[in-house]
Every structure is written in C-alpha cells, then in structure tokens.
Simulated assay, not measured.
Amino acid sequence: MDTIGFDDFLKVELRVGRVTHAEVFAQARKPAYVLHVDFGEEIGLRKSSAQLTALYPPEELVGRLVVGVVNFPPKQIGPLMSECLVTGFHDEHGRVALCVPDRDVPLGTRLL
C-alpha cells in the first residue's frame, strides 16, 4: 500500500449528500442505477452511476444519506455524464454496500 500525506487526502472532497431520485441505468454494461444526489446549497444536485443493484432496490435509496467525491472531473459513462462518485465497499460476495454516515448531518458536510 502506498502512503500519502495529509495534504493529498485534503485534495479529495468527500461530502454528504441525500439521494433524491434513483432509476435503473438500462444502458450500463454492468447493472447500475443513475442516482441524483443533493449535496446542499453550495454544491447542488449531482448525478452518478452506481452499481448498487445487488443490495438496494431503487426505492430504498431515495432519501438516504451517502458519501460522495464531488471534485472529480465529470466522466462520460455511456449516455450519462457522471458528476460525482458515490462511495461504497465490496462485501464478501462482491456486492457494493454504501458508505454512509451513521447520523444525520447537514448536506454538503465534508468528511475530515
């Protein structure tokens, strides 16, 4: 594992957002959803492709808090321009479990 300095860590903007809409991303090569995530007034609404279909139906994602990287450049994923990266962890079966705060925090709060 490479080590990084704290200044490198600070370059990554990990922020809390709330999923406002989740829909099946039919054009994705691997099963995925298109998530619309509200990161608060300063950052606003961002879209992301997320391979969460194995553990979450789309209706269960709406209203959930998530942690996302908001300072990556936009990335074209098929017909979708992904504007953030919603974070998660692979479980023992390779399914993605969301990385989430365990308490309500204001939208846009930065992980430190």
Rank of each mutant, 00 (worst) to 15 (best):
P79K: 07
R64V: 04
L80Y: 06
K11G: 11
L45A: 13
Q76G: 04
E83V: 09
E60I: 00
V37Y: 04
G88Y: 06
L45C: 09
E13W: 13
S48H: 04
V105T: 08
V105F: 02
H36C: 01
R15W: 04
K30D: 08
E41P: 04
D8K: 12
D91E: 04
V86A: 04
L61E: 07
G108Q: 04
D8L: 12
R103P: 00
F89S: 09
E23H: 02
G44W: 12
R29Q: 14
V37Q: 03
R110P: 07
V34P: 03
E23K: 12
H90A: 15
Y56S: 06
H90V: 12
L35R: 05
L45E: 15
V24K: 11
P74I: 09
S82I: 09
R64P: 01
S82K: 02
P58N: 04
V24I: 15
Q27V: 10
V69G: 00
L107Q: 02
S82M: 05
V100M: 14
H36Y: 11
R64G: 01
K30I: 08
G94I: 13
P57K: 14
A28K: 06
V67T: 01
H93M: 09
F25M: 04
L111R: 00
R29N: 13
F9Y: 15
H21F: 05
S49F: 00
G5M: 11
S48W: 02
N71I: 10
R46K: 15
A97T: 10
E23L: 07
V70W: 04
T53P: 00
L55S: 05
G5E: 14
R64C: 05
L10H: 07
G108S: 06
Q27H: 14
A32T: 06
G40Q: 11
G44K: 09
T87V: 05
H21P: 00
T87P: 00
I77C: 03
V24E: 13
T109W: 06
L10S: 12
Q27A: 15
L61G: 04
A50V: 09
M81Q: 12
L107H: 01
G78P: 08
H36Q: 12
R103F: 11
G63C: 03
L14G: 07
R18V: 14
P57G: 05
K47V: 14
A54E: 15
V96S: 03
L107S: 02
H21M: 02
T3H: 09
F72I: 15
E41C: 03
V70K: 02
V69Q: 06
A26F: 07
R64D: 01
P73Q: 11
E42N: 06
P106S: 10
R95E: 15
T109Q: 11
